Deep mutational scan, measured.
Amino acid sequence: RKWEEIAERLREEFNINPEEAREAVEKAGGNEEEARRIVKKRL
């Protein structure tokens, strides 16, 4: 699934746990840019 690939990239890029990465992607509706913004806000 594409969402899992996005979550994996976010996890590696921001050094967050898989659960946090998945939550961000879900919140963003699968949009990678939006997920990235969500993760950055949390850091």
Rank of each mutant, 00 (worst) to 15 (best):
I16V: 10
F14N: 03
W3R: 09
K27P: 00
E26R: 14
W3G: 05
V39D: 00
E4D: 14
A28K: 01
R9G: 06
E8R: 13
G29M: 14
R22L: 15
R11F: 08
E23S: 13
K41L: 07
R36M: 06
V39A: 06
I16Y: 02
N17Y: 09
F14G: 02
K40S: 11
N17P: 15
W3N: 08
N31L: 08
A21V: 04
W3Y: 10
R11S: 14
P18T: 14
A35Y: 00
R36Y: 02
I16R: 01
I38M: 05
E32Y: 14
E20Y: 09
R11A: 15
E20K: 05
E12R: 11
E8G: 09
K41A: 14
R36E: 05
R1A: 15
A7G: 04
E23Y: 07
V39Q: 02
K40D: 14
E12Y: 10
F14M: 07
K40Q: 13
E5V: 05
E26L: 10
A21R: 00
R37E: 14
E4F: 06
N17G: 15
R37G: 10
N17H: 11
I38G: 05
N17D: 14
K41V: 12
I38W: 02
I38C: 03
A21T: 03
E23Q: 13
R37C: 08
E19N: 11
N15A: 10
I16G: 02
E26T: 12
F14T: 03
A21K: 00
R11W: 12
K27W: 08
E26G: 07
E20A: 09
R22T: 09
G30E: 02
F14H: 05
E23C: 03
E19F: 08
E4S: 05
G29T: 07
E33R: 08
R1P: 15
E34A: 09
I6H: 02
R9T: 07
K41S: 14
E5Y: 03
N31G: 04
L10D: 00
N15Q: 14
R37W: 03
R22K: 12
R37Y: 02
K40M: 07
N17S: 15
R37H: 10
I38H: 06
N15T: 06
A28R: 01
E33F: 09
K27I: 12
E8Q: 15
K41F: 03
E5K: 06
A7L: 08
L10A: 00
P18K: 11
W3I: 08
I6F: 04
E12L: 11
K40V: 14
E23K: 12
E12G: 08
K41G: 11
K41R: 13
R9M: 09
E4W: 08
E20R: 04
P18F: 15
E23V: 11
K27E: 15
P18N: 12
R42T: 14
W3Q: 07
A7V: 13
R22V: 09
G30D: 02
I6C: 04
E34H: 09
K40E: 15
N31V: 11
E20G: 05
F14D: 02
K27N: 10
K2M: 15
R22A: 11
K40Y: 04
E33A: 12
E8A: 13
E8P: 01
A28F: 01
A35G: 02
E34F: 05
A21Q: 00
E13W: 04
R37A: 14
E20W: 14
A24K: 01
V39P: 01
G29E: 14
E12F: 09
E26P: 00
E26S: 11
R42P: 05
E8C: 06
L43Q: 10
L43D: 07
N15K: 09
N15L: 09
E32Q: 06
K41C: 07
L10E: 00
R42V: 12
E33K: 08
I6M: 13
K27M: 13
G29P: 01
K40H: 12
A21D: 00
I38E: 08
N31A: 06
E23P: 01
K41T: 13
N15G: 14
R42W: 10
A35C: 02
K40A: 13
G29I: 09
E23H: 11
W3E: 06
E26H: 12
K27R: 13
R1D: 15
E20V: 12
E5Q: 07
A35L: 01
E13L: 05
K41H: 13
K40R: 12
R36F: 02
V39M: 04
K2V: 14
E34L: 11
A7F: 06
L43A: 09
V39G: 01
N15R: 06
I38V: 09
N17L: 13
P18V: 14
A28W: 00
A28V: 04
R22D: 07
E20T: 10
E32I: 14
E23A: 12
L10F: 02
E5M: 04
E33P: 07
E13V: 04
A35T: 02
E8F: 05
L43N: 07
R22E: 09
A7H: 03
R22Q: 12
L10R: 00
R11N: 07
R22F: 12
R36G: 04
E19M: 10
N17F: 09
I38R: 06
N15Y: 08
F14C: 03
V25W: 03
R9Y: 03
A7T: 08
V39K: 00
E32P: 08
V39R: 01
K40L: 08
I16F: 02
E12W: 08
E4T: 06
G30P: 01
E20P: 03
A35S: 05
I6L: 13
G30R: 02
K27Y: 06
R11I: 15
I6E: 03
A7C: 10
E26I: 14
N15V: 05
I38T: 06
I38P: 00
E5L: 04
V39L: 10
R37D: 12
R42G: 12
A21N: 00
G30L: 03
E5T: 05
A35W: 00
P18R: 10
E26N: 12
R9L: 09
N31F: 07
A7M: 13
E34Q: 10
R42C: 04
R1M: 14
I16L: 10
R9N: 07
N31Y: 07
R11K: 12
E34N: 08
K2Q: 13
W3D: 06
E4V: 06
P18A: 15
R36L: 05
N31R: 07
A28Q: 01
K2I: 14
L43K: 08
R22G: 06
E5W: 03
L43P: 06
V39H: 01
V25G: 01
E8S: 12
R9P: 01
E12Q: 12
E34T: 09
W3A: 08
A7R: 04
I6N: 01
L10M: 05
V39F: 01
K41P: 04
E12T: 10
E12I: 11
P18D: 15
R9V: 07
R9K: 12
G30S: 02
A7Q: 08
I16D: 01
N31M: 08
F14Y: 09
A28I: 01
I6G: 00
N17Q: 12
V25S: 02
G29Y: 11
K41N: 11
A28L: 01
K41M: 07
A7K: 04
R37K: 13
F14V: 02
R36S: 04
E20Q: 10
K27A: 13
E4A: 09
G29F: 15
E20H: 08
E8T: 12
A7W: 07
P18L: 15
F14Q: 03
E8Y: 04
A21W: 02
E23W: 09
P18W: 14
E34Y: 04
A21L: 04
R37Q: 13
R9W: 03
E34P: 01
L43I: 13
E13R: 03
R9F: 04
E4K: 06
A24I: 14
A21S: 07
W3C: 05
E23F: 06
E33V: 11
I38L: 07
R1Y: 08
I38D: 06
N17R: 08
E19I: 10
N31T: 04
E20I: 12
I6W: 02
R1I: 14
E33W: 09
A28M: 03
I38Q: 08
K41I: 13
G29A: 13
R22C: 05
R42I: 15
R9S: 08
E33N: 10
K2P: 12
R42Y: 11
P18G: 14
I6Q: 04
V25K: 00
E4Q: 13
E4C: 04
K2D: 13
P18I: 15
E34K: 09
E4G: 08
I16P: 02
E12H: 10
E13T: 03
R36Q: 06
E12A: 10
N15I: 05
E33M: 11
R11P: 01
K2T: 11
R42Q: 14
R37M: 10
A21H: 00
E20M: 15
E5D: 12
I16C: 04
K27L: 13
E32V: 10
R37T: 10
N15D: 14
E19V: 11
N17T: 15
E5A: 04
G30F: 05
R42K: 12
K27S: 11
